[in-house]
Design a protein around this nucleic acid. Structure first.
Lengths: 109, 109
DNA sequence: CATGTATATCGCAATATTACGATTGATTAT
DNA sequence: ATAATCAATCGTAATATTGCGATATACATG
């Protein structure tokens, strides 16, 4: 074991979980905030900004890219990353939906 | 290694990451949806609804409870779980904020 | 072409997660 | 009290994640 049983869940539940997992790390949250802040997409500046090794940053960027949340464009020697608008909006709205499922207490517990 | 370097991130980044990690599993998403759907809080019905062993469900419930997203009340032999409104709203608004940081493209990439 | 610079990838060690059978603990019913 | 039921916890196996040094790859410039 140690393997998530994806078969028993809906595609939507699995997709949402995958996206959330991509977000669920402080380094990746920090990376996304940086990318958004420095609107012009950045690259190895992230290695300087955050206190992690180059290999580690590169790996986090790869995970965000695999999840489809960001995209990278080669720009000479360096690579320029930015938000992938479609995935961002989709995730945003899916999360909005998910959270709005719950409407105030009721009376239980 | 294998240990997230929380020291180098802000409290907010760490907190958000912890909450997202709690959400980032299809079983836990399914559990939350069930809890919300069957508005009256449910309990071991989850074991029947989802196709996971009792021990596994209990473990996922514990993680959600540790994250503060749900709360459980003993009700005779069984336990009744429901959303913790404050944490739910807080996370919802924090995520809303996070996603709204990004406003349309710009021109990069 | 050789060198420097920026990223990606490989390989590894430490740790965390996922899942579950087995057991324990608590509460109700007999 | 005894038995039945529900949920939590323990222990364990399989797998995933995190982080990084070392290396490889790709591009640019002298």
């Amino acid at each position: 074991m140690g393997l998530t049983k994806t078969e028993i869940f809906t595609d939507e539940q699995n997709r949402l979980a995958v996206m959330l997992k991509a977000l669920a790390h402080p380094a990746r949250i920090a990376i996304l905030q940086q990318i958004i802040n420095v609107n012009a997409c950045i690259c190895g500046d992230l290695v300087d900004e955050l206190g992690l090794a180059q290999a580690t940053i590169s790996q986090h960027l790869k995970e965000l890219k695999t999840a489809g949340l960001i995209q990278g464009a080669i720009e000479g020697v360096s690579v320029c990353y930015c938000i992938e608008p479609k995935a961002w909006k989709l995730l945003s709205s899916q999360l909005g939906e998910f959270f709005s499922l719950y409407k105030e207490p009721a009376n239980c517990c």
